[in-house]
Write a protein that binds this DNA or RNA. Sequence first.
DNA 1: GACAGGTGTAACTATATTATGACACCCGTA
DNA 2: TACGGGTGTCATAATATAGTTACACCTGTC
Lengths: 102, 102
Amino acid sequence: MNVEQLSATLAAVASPQRMLILAELQGGRVHVSELARRVGMSRALLYMHLAKLEASGFVTTSLELSPEGTALKHVALAPFSVTVTIDTIADAVATTATVNNQ
Amino acid sequence: MNVEQLSATLAAVASPQRMLILAELQGGRVHVSELARRVGMSRALLYMHLAKLEASGFVTTSLELSPEGTALKHVALAPFSVTVTIDTIADAVATTATVNNQ
DNA sequence: GACAGGTGTAACTATATTATGACACCCGTA
DNA sequence: TACGGGTGTCATAATATAGTTACACCTGTC
């Protein structure tokens, strides 16, 4: 994992709003509009946050048809565990430096 | 640890520039001006990054007199290990929610 | 005194992130 | 057809973060 990826992953979870979203998803998967109501933010904003969370693998989404026939985009928590130590960081920096020097 | 603290801690380390700084400090403590040269940034900018790293406990600083009599601000890596799981986040959210509802 | 090398910060600009509001479109139902 | 409830995205505004430049000040040395 290079610096950019590690940075993006940490930044994705280093947001009070996104932590709220993840905590809410602990109760089970929820569709986007319902999730927006629960965390108290607009759908447009939630889409932005979900894009960051999904890009770094913290959540997964799936578009499914409800019994009533309407499409629902379900968001579910993905299992994850991120540990940061000086070695994690040094490795990322070393990888990035190598790539840049090629 | 509440959401604000956890967010600040993760944000502090979720920066390519600050990762570079931490990686550089792995070789031992360095004074500010020298560190600025090594990571290739201005002192003013480095001070800003160091303030964030120090606020979350990733580095420590100490002002000391060199043998030549000039003051040197030494920056050293502090031992750390940050792990983020859904439980870490849920706890932080729960703590924050409790505080806000008081 | 002029210089080299250090600390510390204020003011400002540039850029990235976060947030809002409006729009187009789809499906079932009264 | 007019709702109500979804999805998805586009400008745009507001705010936070990152970065630059310049300044004041200190110490030892030529």
